[in-house]
Each structure stands twice: as structure tokens, then as C-alpha cells.
């Protein structure tokens, strides 16, 4: 685990100067509903996120925030409300623009070892998605807690039942 964190730190440090290197990423499943945007689910992986060198003129901004409230990453984004559709039969076009007011979409952002939450900001509004802690190794702890609780209950019941 320690080795993984060191490798991750190295890669994050290098990523700032060489953008084509892969890193730890979050693929976010998001929902847009009449202007409201929220994160539904996060999928973690190793991979690439877009550099977003050209950012849209949009009110929506995504922030990845650390445990110490530091902004680790931010980018403006535009939910794909408008989709251009295009086809032709060689004589005329059959296209147009399709507008949607409720749909799911996804964004890829970098992931950090000390990230705590993802914040979506739009104008004055904010929605927060807490990034879950890893549950590795917690199984054994829970098992001990349950066993101890059960033992305490059993002893208490036995005492109560004694004449």
C-alpha cells in the first residue's frame, strides 16, 4: 500500500510536466436534471483524463477537494444539453439539434490519494459528492466487533436469567 502511494505521488508529480502520462483517474457517472447536476457514482481506474486546454464558457465547474480543503483540480465543463445530429442523402440534409433537459453523462477527472470530495458548482449553487474511504481490511475488525457484542449480550442474558 505504502509503495503504491509513493508510486502514485511520483506519477502525480511527473504528470504536471508531461501530460500524456497516465494517472489515477475517476470516471464520474453524472446526472443533469433541468440545470441541476450531481454525481451519481464514481469508478476509479488508471488511465487518462482530458487536459481541457480549451474550456467551455459555462457556469459549471467541477472541483476535486482534499482532506485539508485544498482544491486539487478544477475545470469548467458544459453538460451535453445540445446534440447536433447530421446526415444526408446527397441531395438534402436531415439533421438538426436535439435539446435534452434530463439525462446522464460522464466526466473523467484525475484522482488523488488525499481527495475527500467532488464539488460541482453552478453560479451560487454547490453539490457535494463524498468520496468513500476504502474498506480493505475492515472485514476482520467488523467481525471482532460483532463477536464481542454478541458475547456481551449472551453474558447479560445469562446473568438476567439466573434465579
Amino acid at each position: 500500500m505504502k509503495q503504491f502511494i509513493i508510486i502514485l505521488l511520483l506519477i502525480i508529480a511527473v504528470s504536471k510536466t508531461v501530460p500524456a502520462l497516465p494517472s489515477s483517474i475517476s470516471i464520474l457517472q453524472m446526472n443533469y436534471d433541468r440545470g441541476d447536476v450531481k454525481v451519481i457514482e464514481r469508478f476509479s481506474s488508471a488511465g487518462y483524463y482530458p487536459e481541457r486546454r480549451i474550456q467551455p464558457d459555462s457556469n459549471y465547474t467541477i472541483f476535486v477537494v482534499s482532506e485539508t480543503d485544498e482544491v486539487l483540480y478544477s475545470a469548467r465543463f458544459s453538460p451535453p444539453v445540445k446534440e447536433y445530429l447530421d446526415g444526408s442523402n446527397g441531395v438534402k440534409n436531415y439533421g438538426g439539434v436535439r435539446f435534452s433537459d434530463a439525462f446522464n453523462f460522464s466526466l473523467i477527472v484525475p484522482s488523488f490519494y488525499n481527495e475527500r470530495e467532488i464539488v460541482i458548482s453552478e453560479g451560487g449553487r454547490k453539490t457535494v459528492f463524498e468520496l468513500g474511504k476504502k474498506t480493505e481490511g475492515l472485514f476482520a475488525v467488523w467481525l471482532v466487533v460483532i463477536a464481542l457484542s454478541a458475547a456481551v449480550i449472551a453474558v447479560a442474558v445469562r446473568k438476567k436469567l439466573k434465579p
Binding site: 501530460p19 500524456a20 483517474i25 470516471i27 457517472q29 469508478f43 481506474s45 488511465g47 487518462y48 483524463y49 482530458p50 487536459e51 481541457r52 486546454r53 451535453p80 446522464n104 453523462f105 460522464s106 466526466l107 473523467i108
Partner: peptide
């Protein structure tokens, strides 16, 4: 297509 599936596939390569 599912946008999530598109992004998952795209994340394998550098992409803008």
C-alpha cells in the same frame, strides 16, 4: 450509447 461506456473506453488513451 452510454456516455459512461464511451468515457471508460476513451480513458485507455490520451484524449481531448
Amino acid at each position: 450509447c452510454s456516455d459512461f461506456e464511451l468515457k471508460r473506453s476513451a480513458s485507455r488513451c490520451p484524449h481531448d
